[in-house]
Design a protein around this nucleic acid. Sequence first.
DNA 1: CGGTACGTTGAGTCATATCAACCATAGTGG
DNA 2: CCACTATGGTTGATATGACTCAACGTACCG
Lengths: 235, 235
Amino acid sequence: MKQHELYVPLCEKCSLETSSIFKHLTSEEVEMLNFEKDFRHYKRGDVLYREGNRISGFYCIHKGIIKVFKTGFDGKEQIIRFAKPGEIIAYRSVLSNEPACTSAKVIEDCQVCFIPTEILITLIKSNPSFSLELLRLACHELGEANSFITDIAQKTVRERLAEILLLLMNDFGIDEQNNLKISLTREELANIVGTATESVIRLLSEFKSDKLVELNGRKIRILNKKGLLKISNVF
Amino acid sequence: MKQHELYVPLCEKCSLETSSIFKHLTSEEVEMLNFEKDFRHYKRGDVLYREGNRISGFYCIHKGIIKVFKTGFDGKEQIIRFAKPGEIIAYRSVLSNEPACTSAKVIEDCQVCFIPTEILITLIKSNPSFSLELLRLACHELGEANSFITDIAQKTVRERLAEILLLLMNDFGIDEQNNLKISLTREELANIVGTATESVIRLLSEFKSDKLVELNGRKIRILNKKGLLKISNVF
DNA sequence: CGGTACGTTGAGTCATATCAACCATAGTGG
DNA sequence: CCACTATGGTTGATATGACTCAACGTACCG
């Protein structure tokens, strides 16, 4: 633990790099954040919090990737979103004053800052620009949720899978060989799309036959973006 | 128009009755609202705004019911939520600074107050309690959206229909004969559940055979709440 | 080496969508 | 007043997308 303290990232630097919601804080407020926050490390598979928990603060991702999901009736996960560096999670439960309605699990080893509820409330009360920024964020996420609802309700699994591949490409990028940078199990893919693992596998290999993607274990190389776009019916 | 001015509801009274997000405003702020807002009437079928529009303010419902929906790829509506007296719509687009991602149409004749964007921003900047209230609202809606996503992704149409009936019962209430107070076409029901009109019709008549509901045109009488609850797999 | 987690494929089933026809109702215009 | 049209509701027949179940391969790990 001790040795980590040296590496604790400074919020002022961090927010410059990530253009995060903290960009409008005064230097005193940033200092307070630096002082009050708790820097933590997590490994793939670690759980940050679980549905039903009361949470005493929110998390700002500094490094790594986290999946935020809900557990359905029969125990099946539904992935709601991912959080990557610069993004925050668990603020929803904290602000709506409800127990967490999602769980958060590490996909890629993480470094995160934990910021207690009181600090969040203090900032909201003292800095209107920060409030507005948070509101924008929440409203933006709400818009994305609405689109997702419409997609799941109306599109076929095939369309959704194509769309998700493109979305992952936009959100996490691709390497030099056009491989998706984010690495997910087939089950996780299924849990985003909202389908069975087997269906994802079958559709992926269809996409492969159609020269839309190339598969190497969990590596997915995007060969034909336009083709996927066409299948996904996004406009 | 002139004659309506007499009937313009006062925000101070309104917010007492509906315990709306405006409850923490100062009396000067309420006065400003009263002065700046525009009181409007709409009839069933009227459209308040459409997807893609830039909106110059948000609406607070005083009377009536509005459906908020997205239009999918093939023109099919997906109902995202309803708004009833005391609730506000379109604040999402205004705050996230994006064009509307939904449309809003009147289900039951409406009286609404239209409040310009500037006023909203002014209030957020000047009154932190109001910001917090708005944040709570947005976060709460986000939580509901997340549940809805999980439901649509994982439950059968049958389960969802049962769930929606109960939800409509909670949100809009029932009359003395246990009839749902809200009156929707079969198509609208389908567009909430995310299914085909014919499927809703068939399932409703199954529910009827199973003595769970009684049907009289658009009137739906809830006969067996526990039965529906069991089908819906809500816990 | 056995165990565990993940990936793949095949076969069979079922829920749900689609297509088509038909009825009821109400509003419209000539 | 009647034909006309539009809208909503219902039912039946048929097609099929997607799920489930089951078996098996692969790889990594202690």
